[in-house]
Computed example of a mutant assay.
Amino acid sequence: MPRRSAGILLFRRDPELQVLLGHMGGPFWVRKDEHAWSIPKGEHDEDEDAEAAARREFAEETGHPAPGDLLPLGVVRGAKVLTVWAAEGDLDAGAVVSNTFELEWPPRSGRVQSYPELDRAAWLDLETARTKIVKGQLPFLDRLAELLG
């Protein structure tokens, strides 16, 4: 079975369309910027409802509750099966506080360190977001633009 992941793409119109993306945390991403940003999302079991997982992961990765109304953006299949919803809302990107994960770093060093899932967040216009977002998530930006006209 492929791994499953779900997330929420928060957007606002300020006055142009902007999306909230998070820069992935950990030593692999620390010096990367282009295609190193992600929709707040995370893995879930096959038995867990994807929307419930998206809401949980949004809260864990941003430190803010997920918005109420969600608009489906569909599924993208790649290394994982990723299901994403969009939601209109606003939050202070500078106040995003993510959950953490543990990783042995440097590899084979025996030192386990803790890193945030997302080390920072930012509101980005769609043009900028297309250069920052992980390539596998690009279709969701196009779907959002199409959905909102």
Rank of each mutant, 00 (worst) to 15 (best):
A59D: 07
H35N: 09
V84W: 02
P65G: 04
L82A: 06
A79W: 14
A36E: 02
G94N: 06
P65S: 13
A93H: 00
E51I: 09
A36D: 04
E48N: 06
D90T: 10
A87S: 10
E88A: 09
P40S: 10
R111P: 01
N99L: 09
T83N: 03
D47E: 15
W105A: 00
D69P: 01
S114R: 15
G68E: 15
D90A: 12
V112Q: 08
V76C: 07
D33V: 11
D69Q: 14
A59M: 05
R111E: 15
E43Y: 11
V84D: 02
I39E: 01
A50Q: 04
P72R: 03
G78V: 10
G78C: 08
R77S: 14
A79V: 13
H35F: 14
G78T: 10
R56I: 08
D33K: 07
P40E: 05
G110R: 03
T83W: 11
R56G: 07
V97W: 06
E51S: 10
E61G: 04
T83S: 15
V96Q: 01
A54V: 03
Q113M: 10
W85D: 00
F101G: 10
K80D: 13
E46Q: 14
G68I: 07
G78P: 11
R108W: 01
E61Y: 11
I39Y: 02
A95S: 12
A50N: 07
A50S: 13
K41W: 02
V76R: 02
R111G: 00
W37F: 09
P40H: 06
K41Q: 13
V81W: 11
V96F: 04
D69N: 06
D90E: 15
W105Y: 13
L73V: 03
E102W: 09
A87Q: 06
R77M: 12
H35G: 05
V84M: 04
G89E: 07
A59R: 05
L82V: 15
D92A: 11
F101R: 12
P40F: 06
E57M: 04
A59I: 04
G89H: 01
W85H: 01
D90L: 10
